[in-house]
Design a protein around this nucleic acid. Structure first.
Lengths: 243, 243
DNA sequence: CGGAGTGTTGAAAACAGTCAAAGACAGTGG
DNA sequence: CCACTGTCTTTGACTGTTTTCAACACTCCG
């Protein structure tokens, strides 16, 4: 990490996070209640039911939100990438398990002061509303994947989503020939998609066998023809989501 | 409906809708941009991709949001009950199909004036943020149902959700002996749960055969022992969701 | 070298889906 | 009043995808 941990001005997620609309005087207040926390890949950030005295922005890395059933079945219900927001103002106890999927840095704000600040800083509430509405859209797209797609379509959809995100970080659109590092294990992919890890492994192998994706090691994905992959998602060619 | 269509003061959803926090002067502005629209059960409200020049609150009835795939597979991604909000400020085109599941009355606001009003009326934006966060929680619970539950658990979960809502309208908690009218056809239930309508029918019959629910006609559900039903959902006894 | 974590592959079983037929019910019009 | 129609629902038989259970391969690391 090469950004200055104290200065919001050099923060890599400054323009997309919950503080994106803040003026410099507002940032100063935020700086006074913020602190950074880091987690190694695989580490828990918080367990469902724990009291949460902070909310946070993901600065670098990936975190997952999941819900577990008594018998161990687990469903991932959120994937937090850099600039995404963690926690809910006004809520004391965490409703989900939060785990660092990769090495993770959070910019945390003490919850009480943050809530107080939201009341007189419309810029924060406005941005949070926008981000929450976007997350709701993403959750609904995810529901279609979970409820109606086949195992193969689910895998293709996940790879498409990850490729698009990777591209958008570089301010591009996803293209043939792009490649990216899979931030998820087979088990995490399975928890995301509502499958077993064996089924994930089989379907990834099948896509590889058919030349729709190439693998370098277990984790690096190369997509020789992006349209070919999109055709496997079951969505229409434009990606399905209307803007 | 016995409420006065002009006066927010007698509106049945006044205390829970997006306008819940508004002062009387704010309500006056809202009244000047609002209008009511009604739809019969089964009627489309808007199609995915249509331009939407209004946002709205559900006053009475039930509406569904769904996403369709090219080949006809359909997934319901939202169920809007009285007081729920429809539409997104700042968005021109509808991303989902909206259908009146039962007879439906909407309190519509012209989108442009509503957006303008949001900027100088923090009460509306605050309430909308709260409602959106609640919807996101509901969507995530739904994801667990779609991704990890068996057909039987899905049906039991849906009935539990509907029973709880029914009870909360009467300001009670769900209890043994409660009954309610199913607002959904078997097909709509299937679209909600990511099942086929045949599987829904079979599982409802099975729960009836085992005495876990009783049916009066096709649509009225009686729950003799609420805990027995909850035990079939796969969640832990307290309902799973932490508040 | 042994062990833990991660991933792959095979065979059998189970669950939900598909296809098909028929029942229940409400509304319509003769 | 009754036959007819259309919609919604139930049930049966069969099929097929995904899960389950099991074994094994690969890599990293002490």
């Amino acid at each position: 990490m090469t950004f200055d941990l104290k200065d919001c001005g050099t923060c890599p997620i400054r323009h997309r996070a919950v503080c994106a609309r803040c003026e410099s005087d507002e940032l100063e207040i935020l700086e006074s209640i913020k602190f950074y926390r880091s987690f190694e890949a695989g580490q828990p950030v918080i367990w469902s039911g724990d009291s949460m005295d902070f909310v946070a922005s993901v600065v670098t890395g990936v975190a997952s939100l999941s819900q577990a059933m008594e018998d161990g079945r687990t469903q991932m219900v959120g994937l937090l990438l850099p600039s995404d927001f963690l926690g809910r103002p006004g809520r004391e106890f965490a409703p989900y398990d939060v785990v660092a999927v990769s090495n993770l840095t959070l910019c945390c704000f003490r919850r009480k002061p943050f809530e107080k600040m939201m009341l007189n800083t419309p810029h924060i509430a406005q941005r949070l509303l926008e981000m929450t509405l976007d997350e709701l859209d993403a959750a609904r797209e995810w529901m279609l994947i979970l409820g109606r797609k086949t195992a193969r379509e689910k895998i293709a959809s996940l790879l498409t989503i990850l490729a698009r995100r990777e591209a958008s970080l570089a301010l591009q659109t996803a293209q043939s020939g792009t490649s990216f590092e899979l931030p998820l294990t087979r088990e995490a992919m399975a928890d995301y998609l509502g499958l077993t890890l064996e089924t994930v492994s089989r379907q990834v192998s099948a896509l590889k066998r058919e030349g729709i994706v190439q693998l370098e090691g277990k984790r690096k994905i190369i997509i020789p023809d992006f349209d070919l992959l999109v055709a496997e998602t079951g969505d229409d060619a434009d990606g399905g989501v209307m803007v």
